[in-house]
Simulated assay, not measured.
Amino acid sequence: MTPDPLAVAAMIILLFPMGYFTLASPAFLLVKLDIKPVAQLLRGMFNAHFLVMGVAGIIGTAAFLLAGRLLFAAIVGLLAALAIVGRPRFMQRMDDQLSAGDAGDADAARRLRRLHWTGMLGNAVLLAGLLASIPYISTTA
């Protein structure tokens, strides 16, 4: 079987930002999140990741539709929807913790760290699912 070029392109479009986030986000485990510029940089990284995944998901969905892979298009469409709909809620939770830290809440950095772990875990699970589907996506139907 030969690989479907549109499906392979869709996978690359999705894997690149997820892989980058997987490699970049653990660096924040080495620094304290009660340092305001570090916490703001973490917030910016998550914000950018959600935006990029929304766009990449829409492009990936279109590529899978063009390739005639309706099931994968639906799954990637759900991934895009998750990124688009989940971004405001996740970012609000981060903003709440940043504001709490500014107000003197000593536990805000711990809660921000929990959000960091949650985001990394969510990305890792989605990335693992995407990687596991490569054999099914890259060959023609």
Rank of each mutant, 00 (worst) to 15 (best):
D96V: 10
V55P: 01
L82N: 15
K36W: 03
S25D: 13
M91W: 04
G122K: 04
T118D: 14
Q97H: 09
F90W: 12
K32D: 11
H116P: 01
P88C: 12
A100I: 06
F50E: 02
I75W: 10
G101E: 05
L98W: 03
T118Y: 15
A74K: 01
R43G: 03
A24W: 10
F46L: 12
G101N: 08
L41I: 07
L121E: 03
A74R: 00
R89N: 08
A48M: 13
F46V: 14
L98Q: 09
M91R: 11
I58E: 00
L70Y: 11
L51C: 09
A24C: 09
G54D: 05
R89Q: 13
L70R: 07
A56G: 02
A103Q: 11
L126W: 08
V55E: 00
Q92F: 09
Q97W: 02
V55M: 03
G44Y: 09
A63Q: 07
V85F: 15
F90P: 03
L98K: 02
L23A: 15
Q92T: 15
P26D: 09
A109H: 02
V55N: 00
D95G: 05
D34K: 04
A100W: 10
L41F: 09
V52D: 02
M120E: 12
T118W: 13
R69N: 05
L29K: 12
W117T: 14
R93P: 01
A103S: 13
V85E: 07
P37W: 07
S99H: 10
A106H: 06
R111N: 14
F46P: 00
V52L: 13
L79P: 00
D96L: 09
A108P: 03
G44L: 08
V125H: 04
A48F: 13
P37K: 01
G44S: 06
G86C: 08
A81M: 15
L112F: 10
A81Y: 10
L115P: 04
F50P: 02
A103I: 04
A39E: 07
A62T: 07
L23Y: 12
M45F: 13
I59T: 08
S25G: 05
H49K: 04
I59W: 00
G101L: 07
V76M: 06
F64M: 12
V125C: 05
S99N: 13
P88E: 11
A67I: 08
G57S: 04
D96T: 14
L121M: 14
M94S: 02
A39K: 03
M94Y: 10
Q92L: 13
K32T: 09
P26A: 10
D34H: 10
I75V: 14
R111A: 07
A67W: 07
I59P: 00
V52P: 03
A73F: 03
K36A: 12
G119I: 09
A83T: 01
V125N: 04
G104P: 06
D107F: 09
L42N: 06
T118R: 15
F72Y: 11
R69Q: 05
K32M: 06
G54M: 05
P88L: 11
K32V: 01
R110V: 13
A56N: 01
A27G: 07
V31H: 06
L70G: 06
T118C: 11
R43P: 00
L98Y: 06
A24Y: 12
L65F: 09
A56E: 01
V52A: 12
R113M: 07
L115H: 09
D102P: 04
G60Y: 00
L23F: 15
L42M: 11
A80Q: 01
L30G: 05
F90D: 08
F50C: 02
I75D: 00
